[in-house]
Design a protein around this nucleic acid. Structure first.
Lengths: 238, 238
DNA sequence: CTCGAATGTGAGGCATTCCTCATGTTTGTC
DNA sequence: GACAAACATGAGGAATGCCTCACATTCGAG
C-alpha cells in the first residue's frame, strides 16, 4: 500500500508556511523542473512497460529519469501520485487524439471509412507509443486506475455514439450508446491482442475492422427492416 | 520481486535427507494438510480478487485461510509458487471445462448452437467462480503469468479450430486457426467487460454471440462463394 | 556581484514483507 | 500407551521499499 504512513507533518516550528500546496507538492515554475517532471513521467512509463509492475520502484524510476529520489518527492507527494499523473497524461493524450480525429474532414465520409481510419490511427498510436501501451493495457493494478480506464472508455464511447447519431440514423439513442460501447471495448481488446502477438498484429487489426463492420452493418441506413436484426431494446436491460 | 533471496539452504548436518522435493516443499500425505493446501489456494484467490493485487500478502492469505504463515511455507517454497499453483489449478479447471463441453452431445448440432451454448457456459462459469475471474482477468502482474494465460488461450483456440474443421469445412487450416483465435480472444475480452459492467453483463454476452455469429457466418457451408468475404489468406502473414 | 528563492541530492529512518526455524501439536502404527 | 513422523505455529531475521530532511546547487531579479 502507498499512503498509510503516519502523517508526520512536523515542519519546522516558528514560521507559518504561507502558500504550501495542500496535498500535492511544489508546483514547478522554472523550465528546468518542468522538464524534470516530464522525464520522471517518461521514466515511470518506461520502467513500468519494460520491467513490469513489480520493478516499478521509485529508485528504478529515479535512476531511469537520471535524477534522484528526492527530486521526485519535490513534485509528487507519493508513489501513487506519480502513476496518477502518468495516467492523466496519457488519458489527456487520448482525448486529444480523438478530438483531432473527430474534428477532421473524416466525418464527411461514410461510416465504414470513419471506422477503418479510426482503428488504423489508434493501432498506429498503440504500436508507436510504449507509454500509451503501458497505460492502456497494464496499469490496472489499483482499483482507481481500472476505474479511470473504464471511465475513459465510456467517454470515448459517448463521442462515438454522437457520430453514430449522424451516420446510423434510425437507431434509438440507448442502443446507439450500447453499440458504441461494444465497439470501443472490442477494438481496445483487439489492440491488446495485437500487442501480445506482434507477428499477427496487423492481421488482427484488419480482422477487427471486418468484425466491427459486420456488427454495425445491420444498423446502417435502410438495412434495419431488411435483415432480421434491427434496432432492438437490447442493451437497456437492468 | 519474489525469489531473489539467498538460498541459505543450511539443513541440519549429519544425516542425508532421503527424498526431499527438489525445489518444492513437503508433499502433503495426510488428508488434513491436503485440505489446508486447498484452503490456502482458495484464500489466495479470494484475497487477490477482492482486495487487489497489492493486498495479496502472505499474511493476508494466511489469515483468510485461517492458518499460519509457517503452514504456507510447509507446502510452497515461496510466494510465486502459491500463485503458480493457483494459476495451474484454474487453468486445469478450464481445460476440464472444455473437455466436458466438447465431449458432450453438443457437437452434433449446428455451429451456431455450439457457439451459443459454449459462450453461455463460460459466462456462467465466469459469473459464478470468483477464483476463475481473478485468474482470468487479473493475475497478469508477472510476465510468466501473462504468458501462461496466453498459452492457455492458444490451447483453447486449437481445440476450437478442430471443431471448426468439422463445422466449417472449406476453410483452410491456417485461416481456421486464426478464426478460432479471434473468437477465443473476443469472447474472453467480452467476459472481462461483462464483469466490469455488471448491470449490462447479460446484454454484453448476448451481443457477443451475435458478433461471433456474424463474424463466422461468411465461412459457413456454401456461403463462401456467395458473399464477398470468403476463405482468404488473411491471418497467415508474418 | 549579491542574495533569496527555487531546485536538486541521497543517506538513512521507518514500516512492511518474505521467509526461517525452534518449538509445540496431531496422526497413524505397533 | 508409546513412539515417530507428519503437521502446525508465529516470533523474529533479513531484505526491500517508501519517503524525509538537512544540506548543496542553480536561477534570476536588483
Amino acid at each position: 500500500m502507498f499512503v498509510n504512513r503516519k502523517p508526520r507533518r512536523s515542519k519546522k516550528s516558528g514560521s507559518a508556511p504561507p502558500p504550501e500546496p495542500p496535498v500535492g507538492r511544489r508546483v514547478p515554475t522554472q523550465e528546468r523542473s518542468r522538464q524534470r517532471v516530464e522525464r520522471i513521467l517518461d521514466a515511470a512509463a518506461q520502467v513500468f512497460a519494460s520491467e513490469g509492475h513489480e520493478a516499478a520502484t521509485m529508485e528504478a524510476i529515479a535512476a531511469r529519469a537520471e535524477t534522484s529520489i528526492g527530486s521526485i518527492y519535490q513534485f509528487f507527494p507519493n508513489k501513487a501520485a506519480v502513476f496518477d499523473a502518468l495516467v492523466r497524461r496519457y488519458h489527456d493524450g487520448i482525448r486529444t487524439f480523438f478530438d483531432a480525429l473527430l474534428a477532421g474532414p473524416l466525418l464527411e465520409g461514410p461510416w465504414e471509412t470513419i471506422l477503418d481510419a479510426g482503428i488504423d490511427a489508434i493501432a498506429t498510436l498503440h504500436e508507436t507509443d510504449a507509454g500509451f501501451r503501458a497505460v492502456w493495457g497494464g496499469l490496472h493494478f489499483t482499483k482507481k486506475m481500472l476505474d479511470e480506464g473504464d471511465a475513459l472508455n465510456r467517454e470515448i464511447a459517448d463521442r462515438i455514439a454522437v457520430v453514430f447519431g449522424q451516420k446510423l440514423p434510425g437507431v434509438p439513442p440507448r442502443r446507439r450508446a450500447f453499440l458504441a460501447m461494444m465497439v470501443v471495448e472490442l477494438v481496445g481488446a483487439m489492440l491488446l491482442l495485437a500487442a501480445r502477438r506482434p507477428e499477427q498484429g496487423r492481421a488482427v487489426m484488419t480482422e477487427t475492422k471486418a468484425v466491427v463492420r459486420l456488427y454495425l452493418a445491420p444498423y446502417a441506413q435502410g438495412a434495419a427492416e431488411l435483415s432480421g436484426r434491427g434496432p432492438s431494446k437490447l442493451g437497456s436491460r437492468s
